[in-house]
Design a protein around this nucleic acid. Structure first.
Length: 300
DNA sequence: AATGGTCAAGTCAGC
DNA sequence: GCTGACTTGACCATT
């Protein structure tokens, strides 16, 4: 069991998701930004390892505009050595990596242009992880997509598109339940037809479910992860008191997290904390989880 | 240096 | 029809 947080560390003072306006794109700006992002990523990972945070989500913006037609720079070549070195550090330190393409990436859109651009973006994510030399335990998590007024038809479109994806994408892709459209049960249904692993978002499941017990759905989704997929990942967060239902809290609710650790026994999960204060909550969660025999601490 | 409008991409709910 | 939320404020022209 590892604990992690997504994309941003607010304590260090650098960012690995710096970007710029499309209108400002030029090769120099592009390369300088990537250099800065990669350098910050290494700082964040080292900061995390020292604190037994061994799970991290890399921002999709680490290579800005990577899948955009404007991007003519061969960043895969230019940064291959640097990416390989970062990947080496990740492997040596026992860090688990995930990525989460944003809401524009839709494999099940009825608009084939949107699907085509989405596949390009997924290919970028997969190639980044490949260039770091990470095995198939490094995952790209995606929601099923839109409903378009016809959830069943939209699931069928997802399955069709998934089946024709490049194996380089397929071997890393996992689907995640969301808080309004597709439930964990529907994701499990897609798994039965495709074999794609299901990443459970525990909080979104609490918002959108068919009354299943948490342990049961944790167990069922976990069973969709094969040997090469690694320990099943879950997203964990809690309700923001003022925001709409489904809105992520500012800080981790430690009492609720403790309860989750108890409920989930004896299952092994890598836990991504989706809370606004990022590494601060991760540190609290780690200190709590250290009492749990499942917790995996750093080797350093 | 500070301000405020605007930013690659899509969907959907709520006004 | 427009705005805001989504995992998240930062960039940049103008003053």
């Amino acid at each position: 069991m590892r604990i992690g947080y997504p994309c941003i560390n607010r304590s260090i003072g650098c960012r690995s998701d710096r970007k710029f306006r499309l209108a400002s794109f030029n090769p120099e700006r592009f390369s300088t930004t990537i250099s800065g992002n990669l350098s910050c990523l290494r700082q964040i990972l080292a900061w995390n390892v020292m604190r037994d945070i061994l799970f991290f989500r890399i921002s999709s913006d680490i290579i800005p505009f990577a899948s955009h037609p404007v991007c003519s720079v061969p960043w895969q070549v230019q940064f291959s050595e640097e990416l390989e070195l970062t990947g080496h550090y990740i492997r040596e330190s026992g860090i688990r990596i995930s990525m989460h393409p944003d809401q524009f990436i839709l494999l099940n859109s009825p608009d084939e242009q949107i699907v085509s651009r989405s596949i390009d973006e997924l290919a970028y994510h997969a190639s980044l992880l490949d260039l770091m030399g990470l095995d198939t335990q490094a995952k790209i998590q995606l929601h099923v997509g839109g409903c378009y007024g016809d959830p069943e038809g939209s699931i069928a479109r997802f399955i069709r598109e998934y089946q024709s994806l490049d194996p380089a994408i397929k071997r890393r892709l996992v689907i995640e339940n969301d808080e309004v459209r597709f439930t964990a049960a529907q994701c499990l249904n897609i798994n039965e037809q495709t074999g794609i692993p299901v990443l459970l978002d525990v909080f979104h499941h609490a918002c959108n479910n068919n009354g299943e017990e948490v342990w049961d759905v944790l167990n069922a989704t976990g069973s969709t992860w094969g040997a090469g997929d690694g320990i099943p990942m879950v997203d964990y967060s809690s309700q923001h008191p003022e925001k709409r239902p489904g809105g992520h809290a500012e800080h981790i609710d430690l009492a609720d997290f403790q309860k989750f650790l108890e409920i989930s026994r004896p299952l092994e999960r890598d836990i991504m904390l989706e809370v606004k204060d990022k590494e601060t909550s991760a540190l609290s969660a780690v200190s709590l989880a250290k009492n749990d025999p499942r917790f995996e601490a750093g080797k350093l």
